[in-house]
Design a protein around this nucleic acid. Structure first.
Lengths: 246, 246
DNA sequence: GCAAAAGTGTTGTCCTTACACCCATGC
DNA sequence: GCATGGGTGTAAGGACAACACTTTTGC
């Protein structure tokens, strides 16, 4: 699935001239990517936002976005935005949806393809601070530019669904984490309370947690054991089609 | 969620001029929509395809697509394609994903936003027959133009997942259907066999099936009862947030 | 010693699965 | 009367939810 067909790369033939002429006749629209960059810290889910460029949206916040270059893959554009804004490479990124209402941008028709990205906040302290780039707690509703509130709501819905079916939580945590931290991620994102014993049993029975043989430090209470997630085992089981729940 | 913010409609102010100038500086790309139109008939899942326009893809098939007009909403464009190709309005349509590899179209850079659509084949007999428009069984792999094989695979994955969580099957069936027809839809799409008794129990317990007090006709065996799906009840329960499985 | 969270098992309920027999209809 | 699918119930197993007490550490 999703195998890329390399046989369609342009060649200089009569056929190709026909195709080129066709495409040249197409209307063109400005295309952007926006990234909803989620992170987790201080026991709550956060999203990275910048202050809007436009005077019209003065004081309002927007998602991290940029134009798609004329010969750039959409995924590549999203990774580039992330790199330019935060300095991070090799970050988990997934396409969520495209938004194309004709009046969603006050400057005219702009279609945007939205990606969601999950970061470990701790690893991001080096980030570039242009445009008042900052983490904002999801709960505090702040004024947002364009249709970015709608987009963020869509991404949050996406995240809530995905985290129950895929091991996304581990992209929001350090490599080694305690079970309490893991549960906090789920509770914050889903906005529910979960039973600690059942939560631990569930993850223990899945068999993806590797005991790091380390303990928490600098906590004001009994320290918990640290674990890491067995991404290799997960990939292997997924490949084998063995029934997995997430 | 997904509430549309009407406050951003263009106005003729200095602010707006700033935004307009900004958007005018953006690179522009050709944008299309493609529809993977699924239907169900003769006990198998089908997809509507046309013969490709391009000589380069002579004999190959492609999804139903068209350009997005410069001031057209993406959803509206998809509905328009559907209407122009099949004559149908008010059809179930959902955005699946956007594809933007720079070389996916031999004529140059074209980004496409893909929608999946589910039709009742029986209702489509009036359809326009341009470009050799025809239903093709999903199983028979046929040569496809562009990256439409990849796109179709993505849509099929989407459909398999969605049909287990949402009542999409009823968009592929007549208003009144037998439980066997319903089960056939699930079995064809998921490519599995299901136990008839458990299947019936499951749907009976959900409470969404309305007894039409009619029987099948023209079948070579004992006729089954016909049911319709209680869309109103489904919408109501969904609204109330009562825990539902699909 | 007190506050705060770690760690741990059992029980009941519900959902899912597996499975077999008689019935109604067309031919 | 035979072929084809319609229609039905039960029992076992697995997953999930509810629930309380002891332990370890920092202060």
């Amino acid at each position: 699935m999703l195998e890329y067909n390399k046989s369609i790369a342009p060649t200089n033939t009569a056929h190709n001239q026909e195709a080129v002429s066709l495409v040249e006749s197409y209307p063109k629209v400005p295309l952007t990517v926006d990234c909803a960059i989620f992170g987790f810290g201080e026991n709550s889910l956060k999203v990275l936002l910048i202050k809007s460029d436009l005077a019209q949206f003065s004081g309002k916040y927007s998602l991290l976005g940029d134009i798609v270059k004329s010969n750039e893959d959409l995924d590549a554009a999203a990774h580039r935005v992330l790199y330019e804004r935060t300095g991070m490479k090799d970050v988990y990124l997934e396409q969520v949806q495209s938004f194309g209402k004709p009046d969603r941008h006050p400057g005219g028709r702009v279609v945007t393809t939205v990606y969601a990205s999950l970061l470990n906040v701790k690893h991001q302290e080096l980030s570039i601070k242009d445009h008042d780039l900052n983490w904002h707690s999801i709960d505090e509703m702040i004024g947002m530019a364009f249709d970015h509130k709608e987009i963020l709501d869509t991404c949050l819905g996406w995240l809530r669904k995905r985290i129950q079916e895929h091991p996304l939580a581990f992209n929001l945590l350090p490599k080694k984490f305690s079970l309490r931290e893991l549960q906090n991620v789920y509770e914050s994102i889903l906005n529910i309370k979960m039973d600690r014993r059942n939560f631990r049993k569930k993850f223990a029975s899945m068999g993806y947690l590797i005991d790091a043989h380390e303990m928490e430090t600098n906590v004001m209470h009994r320290p918990g054991k640290l674990y890491s997630f067995d991404f290799a085992l997960y990939a292997q089981r997924k490949q084998n089609g063995v029934g997995i729940d997430f």
